[in-house]
Amino acid sequence: MLIPLGLAGVFFLGLAGWSAYVGRKAEEMVPAEGQFAEVEGACLHYVDINPEAQGPAIVMIHGLMGQLRNFSHSLAARIAADHRVILVDRPGWGHSSLSGPRPGIAAQARMIAALIERLELDKPLLVGHSLGGAVSLSLGLDRPELVLGLALIAPLTQAIDTVPPVFKGLLAPAALRPVLAWTLVVPMGLRNGPATAAAIFAPDPVPGDFALAGGGALAVRPKSYLAGSFEVRAAPGEMAALVARYGEMRVPVAILYGRGDAVLDPGVNGEKTAAEIPGATIELIEGGHMLPVTKPAETEAWLRRVLAG
């Protein structure tokens, strides 16, 4: 009995060591490239592009299983030609770390608000992609005086009972998350990574350089699984609370969706939400969920129309 248990222990320790090794390698391949700011509960990694630019600054917040290179891959440099652009790794993602309890949507919004105040930004436009859109909505409701408006790209905006199929692997009970994160998640992520990326990008192709230039390699880490599993479990309750307050929104909200989005339903999270938020607008274009990467010209043009008011 002791021998099988010992062998199992060695096996799982080996998986944990391999997972740690892969995580370190991913961070070496996609290193931190910006600055760090301490806020309550987290140390946020951010990249500040063209800080001397005039006009409204733009703060970009990525989605689930992402990081700030989701924006710098194709989009940020375009809009940074004449705007200050700040890309942020959300708390617990990318190279941002936590110093307190794992934060939900509302807590992350408070941390981003603290970063805006720390950088002394004067009413930036908040750009949120996917779950970053939910964080943006929470910030807009709670701290409207801080932002010029919200520009939401393929955002999560509704309480969804059914998790998108591509993220169902994140639905582990809290007690099992650490065990899975440090044993099975990394080898399975390496094996299934191409298929997962294809499902998230569909119907658009996955760029060949996305793992590095787009930060995709950082998704295959125990840290990312733990953050993603927590957020998927917590999101429905937090989103229900946000939706109930949409009538209170006092900042302009613009939504951009790809008609072919295979992750979030444009009708539910786009058109329905635009009808619920006073004065909100929605624009639909051809494309999938990863518009900042796959449709940068169209996304830039839309952002410039939003900025022009």
Rank of each mutant, 00 (worst) to 15 (best):
A301H: 05
G279R: 01
K295H: 15
P173A: 01
Y246F: 14
H45K: 07
D261I: 04
G228L: 01
A262F: 01
D261M: 09
D89P: 02
L44Y: 03
A151C: 08
L171M: 15
W18K: 11
A16G: 11
R118Y: 13
L137H: 08
A175S: 07
R221L: 08
Q54I: 14
S229G: 12
N50T: 13
M65Y: 05
A159P: 13
L141K: 01
L13S: 10
P4E: 08
V185N: 11
P222E: 05
F36H: 12
L284H: 09
K272C: 14
K295I: 04
L291H: 08
D209W: 11
L256S: 10
L190K: 04
A274C: 04
A240P: 13
G189R: 00
T196S: 09
Y21C: 04
Q158F: 13
A211S: 12
S138H: 09
S224Y: 07
R24V: 10
G63H: 07
L13N: 06
A195N: 03
G288I: 00
I49R: 11
F11L: 12
G228D: 09
L190P: 10
E33Y: 07
R118S: 15
P266R: 01
G128Y: 11
R90C: 06
A202Y: 04
A172Y: 02
P56T: 01
V163A: 14
A199V: 09
S138N: 14
S224R: 05
V232H: 01
